[in-house]
Amino acid sequence: MSERSIMVTGGFGVLGRVVAAAFADQGDRVARVDFAPVAPDSIARGMDFAGIDLTDTAMAERAVADAANAHGGVDVLVNVAGGFTWQTVEDGGVDAWEKMFAMNLLSNMTITRAALPALKRSPAGRIVNIGAQAAVQAGAGMGAYAASKAGVHRLTEALAAELAGSNITANAILPSIIDTPVNRADMPDADTAQ
């Protein structure tokens, strides 16, 4: 399938920009969606949706509709959007848990639900969720993050079961620690070579 219509959430971040560029480099039309107010760069064969709060159902639906109208549908949704916080249960509070739930899980569910009708019209719809190894084995201080990423893992499993027999597949990628400036600052001793 050539010239697919791709949506990448978290498209202005380090990983999102690499994912979006990889699709654009192979000839796909890419829509980058991000909470940030301005894109840090532009993308060939693409468009940007800045200032999108993916926990807001109406904003997610509007971004999908605009991307589908501009690119003739949606064939692939890659959910990169998310965040990280390091905080122990003893020293932390509920705010971190709510933030991780919203950034990592609710944002994923909202845009996926909005994109399902367009993905169903694609001859080969794809949903790719970026989870985390921490969803399988959490470390100290990773409770809120790991729990929210475990939710992404379970959401992906539920989607795969719900969409079985359709033209859509749902899968998750579970990377370890990605080498980004923020992760280097938060976890200076982390092994990012895994």
Rank of each mutant, 00 (worst) to 15 (best):
R4C: 02
I6P: 03
I6S: 07
V8K: 03
V8R: 08
G11D: 11
F12D: 04
G16N: 05
G16D: 08
V19Q: 01
V19L: 08
A22S: 12
F23S: 01
G27V: 02
D28W: 11
A31M: 08
D34L: 04
D34F: 02
F35M: 12
A39K: 06
D41H: 13
D41W: 12
S42H: 13
S42G: 10
I43A: 00
G46Y: 09
M47D: 14
G51L: 10
I52V: 15
L54F: 05
L54K: 09
D56Q: 08
D56R: 11
T57K: 13
A60L: 12
A65T: 09
A65Y: 01
A67Y: 06
N69M: 14
A70P: 00
A70S: 14
V74Y: 05
V76Y: 03
V76E: 11
L77F: 03
N79V: 08
N79S: 12
G82A: 06
G83V: 13
G83T: 13
F84I: 11
F84G: 01
F84R: 04
T85Y: 02
E90Q: 13
D91E: 13
G93H: 03
V94Y: 12
D95K: 11
D95S: 09
A96Y: 00
W97K: 00
K99R: 15
A102V: 04
N104H: 08
L105K: 04
L106S: 07
L106K: 15
S107W: 02
M109G: 01
R113A: 01
R113W: 00
A114Q: 12
L116N: 00
L116G: 03
P117L: 12
P117R: 06
P117Y: 04
K120L: 15
R121Y: 02
S122V: 03
S122P: 00
A124S: 15
R126F: 00
V128E: 05
N129Q: 14
I130V: 15
A132L: 03
Q133W: 07
Q133G: 09
A134G: 09
A135M: 04
A135C: 06
G139E: 13
G139N: 08
G139R: 08
A144M: 03
Y145C: 01
Y145R: 03
K149Y: 01
A150V: 01
V152C: 09
V152A: 13
V152Y: 02
H153W: 10
R154E: 06
R154L: 07
T156W: 10
E157R: 10
L159Y: 09
A164H: 10
A164L: 12
A164R: 14
G165V: 05
S166Y: 07
N167S: 14
N171D: 04
N171H: 11
N171Q: 13
A172E: 14
A172G: 02
A172W: 02
I173M: 12
I173G: 09
L174R: 06
P175T: 08
S176C: 01
S176E: 10
I177C: 08
I178K: 10
T180S: 15
T180V: 01
P181H: 11
V182T: 15
V182F: 04
R184K: 14
A185S: 11
A185H: 09
M187L: 14
D189Q: 12
D191S: 02
T192L: 04
